[in-house]
Amino acid sequence: MGRIVIVRLFALPVQIAAITALIFVLMEVMPGDPIQMMLGEHGSSPEQIENLRAMYGLDKPLHVRYVLYLSRLFKGTLGSSLRSRGPVLKDIARYFPASLEIILLGVLIAYPLGIFIGSLAAAKKGIIDSLSRFFALLGSSAPVFWSAIVLQIVFFSKLNWFPAIGRLDVNIAAPKVVTGLLLFDSLLGGNWPTLGNCIHHLFLPVTTLVLFQVAVSIRMTRASMLEVIGQPYVTTARSKGLREATVIVKHALRNSLVSLVTTWGIETGKLISGLAVIETVFAWPGLGRYIVQSVLFHDYYSILGSVVVLLVFVVLLNTIADIAYVRLNPKLRYE
């Protein structure tokens, strides 16, 4: 168990080095010139362009730039963004909490809901099972951007129940930054109107994520539960005369949860793709939207920096899931 974690954490720098090297090569072949993009349409003198190029270290050959980048990576600044002109890490630190807010809420709602529906489906079979499979398919087939827009059209444009974009209304003051998660910050400051406004804004993006993620969760839970319910010890529990609910919840569900933990880690890492789209649709200032805009703007170091941060995030999630798996599984705990 300790071995898995150590291997994972040692593999991380190698993965980062490999991915960043790959992106460096990709960017070398990139046709657009980032400095030109930065200066915009109006003409600048060739010296100006050369100066800027030197300032961002873009005049040096590829391998020199790569080594330089690795050293900056090591120092933790991740290079400087061509858009904000500050360190990429600072940008990411500003945008990441907004993403985390959606991820946390989405996952905390979607996974329990998925467990409930999925285990009900596996236990009851019949019509509930068919319905839940149907629902899971609906959730995973609808393109994320489309469900987001449909929610906006219905709940903002038609009914005007929820705001369509942003984290807070313009006339609402943001709470003092503690964690960067508006939900916590306004709660900590006892700032109720802001808290309400924040929840109001979170509703549509989180619902979009939940629609998608709950489908994943239902499918995973159902598959894992069906496997467990087929095991002899479940039959034993039933023949002991335990109530069906006890058999399902105490014997089957608890055991399938153990194996679900690993898949949660993986799936939570994967939802970042959907997040990039959700944040774009809801004009949510998070990391997903930041990456999209960096790519559109050819912002070298921002792309690299966000990819590195994402990689660390995904690996951490999987490592935590691994640890949790071992902690929860008594068979492995005492080995």
Partner: peptide
């Protein structure tokens, strides 16, 4: 293959397209 698969499945295509031009 591990290196290519370690990123969420939209992110890597995004970076590639960003590099090659949309």
């Amino acid at each position: 293959a591990d290196v290519l698969l370690c990123l969420p499945d939209l992110i890597f295509p995004m970076v590639i397209v960003g590099a090659l031009g949309p």
